[in-house]
């Protein structure tokens, strides 16, 4: 249990705009394998939430089943967690986010949880533009059941045991683009700076953020023949751009240099500054993004960064035209029709 009030002042610990230190954003101790890519992601979620001055009590953390799905216990103890059933995290996020539209929703899933058993829920959550950061910690294997292939494993990839994957991979990012997702990004757990910036931008986004993070499994998929090993991914990681994120509260204090920097502004005023590395890549061009990703995948590369951004897609509570107050807070005075209404209905049935 953490406290609401900022942690006891340690002279050296910096605090954020809310007066919290980074320690206020941590969770329980990880029980994953030492060196697991997932723990690096957890660390960046903590950093980004701290730096973005996220109100911890508003955070709801959702997951399904698998190594990735354990991680919501390892960050943001101030928030509420819901570790549900395999592949069904998106529907858990859907219901809770509708019940309370003030929640800040983070879903953590894996490639097995989202691209195999949970494919249906992934697809439909993205279509509905649930207000959530949907993180896929993608290692190409089932870790918790000891190393079977997942649906994102490359065709021809080898397991440690020598088994070969006969089937083509499913790519969460192009799939999300196809489904109309307004914020699609891919990161590598070994590139904390890029991940940190994208997570901060994701916190500012109103709809579904699909964030596929290549996160090597050090136990089952880190051998020389693996296409998801730490070394292989590092060698094939092609960052698209240098990213900067400026939260709405800091916009006036930060000057974004002119020149080759593209700026995308969110409805709350936050800005993402994008300085291209990959010549001619435009993250606001959905079809161009799909083409570029497909081309890079054909070459065995991982294009990383903000693959696509459309800052103005209405999230589900807005599409459903829900009242501003959280539905969960509405009382009987608002919800229960009067005796006159029942009488009117009964008359119509006579």
């Amino acid at each position: 249990m953490t406290t609401a009030t900022p942690s006891a002042p340690t002279p050296s610990a910096p605090t954020n705009n809310l007066g919290f230190s980074k320690q206020d954003y941590v969770g329980s101790k990880s029980t994953l394998c030492a060196g697991c890519g997932h723990d690096s992601i957890t660390a960046q979620i903590i950093n980004a939430a701290f730096e973005s001055s996220i109100e911890g009590y508003r955070v709801a953390k959702y997951s399904g089943i698998g190594c990735s799905s354990k991680t919501p216990a390892y960050f943001l103890n101030q928030g509420w967690g819901f570790n549900s059933v395999h592949g069904r995290m998106p529907s858990i996020a859907t219901g809770a986010s509708l019940a309370n539209r003030n929640l800040i929703n983070i879903g953590v899933s894996g490639d097995g949880d989202s691209m195999s058993i949970g494919m249906g829920q992934f697809v439909h959550a993205v279509r509905r533009n649930i207000p959530m950061i949907y993180i896929i910690e993608d290692n190409g294997v089932y870790g918790l059941t000891k190393g079977q292939f997942s649906a994102t494993a490359d065709k021809g990839a080898h397991l440690k045991s020598g088994a070969v994957n006969d089937f083509p991979p499913i790519d969460p990012c192009t799939l999300a683009l196809e489904l109309g997702c307004g914020f699609v990004a891919r990161c590598f757990s070994g590139n904390p700076k890029q991940l940190n910036t994208i997570l901060k931008a994701a916190f500012a986004y109103e709809g579904t953020v699909v964030l596929d993070i290549i996160s090597p499994c050090v136990t089952f998929n880190n051998h020389d023949a693996s296409t998801r090993s730490y070394k292989h991914v590092k060698d094939h990681d092609f960052p698209l751009h240098d990213l900067g994120f400026v939260q709405y509260s800091e916009v006036e204090d930060v000057e974004i240099p002119a020149g080759q920097t593209e700026v995308v502004t969110f409805p709350d005023g936050s800005k993402v500054a994008i300085k291209a590395i990959h010549e001619g890549y435009d993250p606001t061009d959905r079809f161009g993004a799909m083409k570029a990703i497909h081309e890079s995948m054909a070459k065995g590369e991982f294009l990383t960064g903000l693959l696509y951004i459309n800052p103005t897609q209405p999230p589900l509570p807005q599409v459903l035209n829900l009242v501003d107050e959280p539905l969960a807070s509405l009382g009987e005075d608002v919800l229960k029709p009067s005796p006159a209404v029942l009488d009117e209905i009964m008359q119509s049935l006579m």
Partner: peptide
């Protein structure tokens, strides 16, 4: 004052019901 969503299947419907209940 009510959110009604036709889900993709009954599994997702159950998930919505329980998580919405969990959230109050």
């Amino acid at each position: 004052t009510v959110a009604i969503v036709q889900m993709e299947d009954e599994l997702a419907s159950a998930g919505v019901v329980l998580s919405a209940g969990w959230a109050g």
